[in-house]
Design a protein around this nucleic acid. Sequence first.
DNA 1: GTTACGCCTGACAACGTAGTCAGCATTGAT
DNA 2: ATCAATGCTGACTACGTTGTCAGGCGTAAC
Lengths: 354, 354
Amino acid sequence: MTAHATSDDARRRPPGMTDVARLAGVSQKTVSRVVNNERYVSEALREKVLQAAAELGFRPNTAARALITGRFKRIGVVSLGSALYGPASMLVALERATRAAGLSFMVANTPEGQPEAIQDSIDWLLAQGVDGVILSEPIDEGQHLRPDPGVPIVSLGQAADLPAEQVALARGRTAASCREAVEHLLDLGHERVWHVAGPLDWWEARERLEGWAEAHRARGIEPPPHLEGDWTPSGGYTAGLALPPEATAVFCANDDTAIGLAGALHEAGRRVPEDVSLVGFDDIPAAAYLSPPLTTVQQDFEGDATHALDVLMRLLPGAAGPEPEAKAAAPRRRLVVRSSTAPPLSTATPLSQP
Amino acid sequence: MTAHATSDDARRRPPGMTDVARLAGVSQKTVSRVVNNERYVSEALREKVLQAAAELGFRPNTAARALITGRFKRIGVVSLGSALYGPASMLVALERATRAAGLSFMVANTPEGQPEAIQDSIDWLLAQGVDGVILSEPIDEGQHLRPDPGVPIVSLGQAADLPAEQVALARGRTAASCREAVEHLLDLGHERVWHVAGPLDWWEARERLEGWAEAHRARGIEPPPHLEGDWTPSGGYTAGLALPPEATAVFCANDDTAIGLAGALHEAGRRVPEDVSLVGFDDIPAAAYLSPPLTTVQQDFEGDATHALDVLMRLLPGAAGPEPEAKAAAPRRRLVVRSSTAPPLSTATPLSQP
DNA sequence: GTTACGCCTGACAACGTAGTCAGCATTGAT
DNA sequence: ATCAATGCTGACTACGTTGTCAGGCGTAAC
């Protein structure tokens, strides 16, 4: 007959430590000790408490815990509201790393096309209560981030004008691997390599551009002017339309850009890789199955994510020692050579300067 | 002896309402009223309080608020740890909808390849403190979800054996739009359409399979046996190798699968769309730039996300009335016809049954 | 026999906020 | 003039947990 106990049912309050304590015949404090795995609890009591907790379906109230400890055991991540493979993969990796560390995880997406809203996203996260913030895709648009004292921020890349005190840089090797990719093309015999960059207010885009330019300068070559894309196939397509006829090799800032560029080349009747060699970045799952399969650079999201989290956790109050080289396994990227790159045709037919 | 820290306290305790109240010369309760925009506060005091709050950099403590109200203003989303375009886009859309509703948002990724861990993810979210849960990519692997009384769960699709009381279904039109896609192929003159499905323990995969089969049955055609993929290009490639020679049209469960299949066809010397017409699902950004551009079905992540959130919020304690047809703008999907579909060659050369 | 010290347990006091209620001033109606 | 209603404010308390401290019990050291 209590099936329709709506009035009493709504009043139901989830069980607390006090309820568990009453059922187990101990004090509320002892329940707290058991739940937190503290020492100095006899096995007998521990058993009783655990059983009572299970019986009531007890779950510790994180709000009360956070209230008294002052920490939330939660970090926030600022990302960009997009399903781009790179950012999305980084989020997945960050979530995994965070949860493995026993922390919880909260995302705030900066609206697309409004990179100046990064500070808004940070504020939102701070308002929600986080112990630290990770900037997943740093963009600087002349913005001045004003971090909160007490809440450290870690950026995957150099963002704006973050004061070094509370901000750590956590990313590496991007430029080096881009340089490797471009060198691959130069080694094949291409005189110069064109580049379709990402939006240059993104740190990642600048880093990739830098690696591309370095590869040229290291050989005393002046790199051609770069084209600017926007990470999307559409941007790559537009860049492809603007690609000079003499270009025989292109390094794209990411795979999607390469796909768009390939589409434009296809329409123009230029073949890949016979007429134009193409290298991407990211190694999206589809890269190996395109026609032709795309030579690209594999990312290391897991490595970057755990590294960033390590850096952040070291800044958190109650951080352990420096522990400098423990996580020496630095993030590694890898060039994956497929069929979209080949020597230029001009190598076979020597009509270099008519 | 305890440093009676009235002034030079180095303690980093963030300012609370009490501090703001002291500075503004009012009571803590009045600060509470101002912060929560309650009535019955004179404009003069409101002004003073706001100024004091800004001066101290006051931010309301969500833990204390959640402790006393019993609500977290936070929902949890269970997704799959993958950067697949579909799930990633849905997450972005859910985050946007959630934040627009003033709620905060927490993700728990179920480890790839362990769909039975959905309950673990739900438990994790409940332990973190959420008012409701959304299952973004429902999978049923013979699992029995045991929802928590008091925390409603909404699933984007029919998951396992969720009791209807606390579970709402929020998704629509998938099957219908698949049917439309297949009908497009049949209308072009293809006798039958093959299908590379997603993993059939995913609700979405079953729904798309169903739409494909329906399109056939509605015309009295027996659909050919389906092939099973795994959402990835790799799975599509494998399916492509197994595609019978007589197949002239294929509907893939998503665009990535179609890309892989196209790769296999290309290797086998079968042209798209001349020899085989191809339709995908999702309309990933790259779809329009493939060679040939892919005919596909555009999703409506925003619509699904807001709908799911609407359903969930109606289940939350203190929900408003039913408000049945207010959000009548049902999610809409759209077939985007590009160049990967064409009439079969056999239509031109009538040698249908030799 | 006493002391000292680990081990174990519980009473009590916070933490920062919102709910409740009492109280004061002002206004309008009787 | 009195009473009621309304606008506004603050004192007090509860929320569920952890930190602090006091105390009891047993065992080993003096």
